[in-house]
Simulated scan of single mutants.
Amino acid sequence: MKIQRSLSNTSLWLVISFLPLLMAESVRAEVKQNEQTVITRIKRLSEIERPATNVSELFSQSSTPSSEVVEVTAVKANPTAKGVEVILQTTKGQQLQITNRSAGNSFIADIPNAQLRLPSGEAFTFRSEKPLTGITEITVNNFDANTIRVTVIGEPSSPTVELFDSDEGLIFGLTTAASTAQQPPIQPTPQVK
């Protein structure tokens, strides 16, 4: 029994000892094999693109093939018979991909590869307070350099949201349990940053 154990430890030690040499030999062989071809620079670890590690990263990688940032040039909130619609005006509305969630009484939608930009190029924020019975605030802002965040705070619960594409852009149709056909006019307050 003791002889087997010491032999196993010795074998393991030999494998571990010679592993760097074996790896070095394989690299040398590869370099010799490629001496006749052009040797390219090997990427550093920090230069290698990492694969997605969660679901939202996976969807953002697969659904946005280009890294082009879509410009949303205006945001409108219009009353409807059922509630209110928030329109993100852009000519590339079909390229906008949404990741949404509810948190408490809020609906939150993140739109990667998009930015709020006035035609002059300035960033802006859209905010509408109490646009509808059951909604206390709608905010649309640049969450980071490549993401727009739409936040709708409901009262007492999160609103129901439907998404629509149109020639104008992307439309969020918002309704609440308390909404009625007669709504006061919405007074948005766009703010230039």
Rank of each mutant, 00 (worst) to 15 (best):
S106T: 06
R41M: 12
M23Q: 15
T133M: 09
Q183H: 11
S67A: 13
P112W: 00
T180W: 02
A74P: 01
F59D: 12
N113C: 04
A123D: 14
G134N: 04
I138A: 11
K193L: 07
S102M: 13
E155L: 14
G169S: 11
F18E: 12
T91M: 05
F107R: 00
Q183V: 12
L116P: 05
T73P: 06
L88K: 02
T189V: 11
L12R: 06
I135T: 10
S157W: 06
S157Y: 10
E85V: 07
A181R: 04
Q36T: 15
T40V: 15
P112G: 01
R101T: 11
S120D: 14
P188K: 00
P51D: 13
I138S: 04
V140E: 11
A109C: 04
K76L: 15
A29T: 05
S46W: 07
S158C: 09
D110G: 02
S67Y: 03
V15R: 08
Q94R: 05
G83K: 06
Q97P: 00
S60T: 09
E35V: 12
P65H: 03
F59G: 06
N141A: 11
I108A: 07
A81Y: 04
T136M: 09
E71C: 12
P20N: 04
S106K: 03
V86W: 03
P119R: 00
R50V: 15
M1G: 07
T147S: 08
T160F: 10
I186E: 11
V55I: 10
R28M: 15
S63W: 12
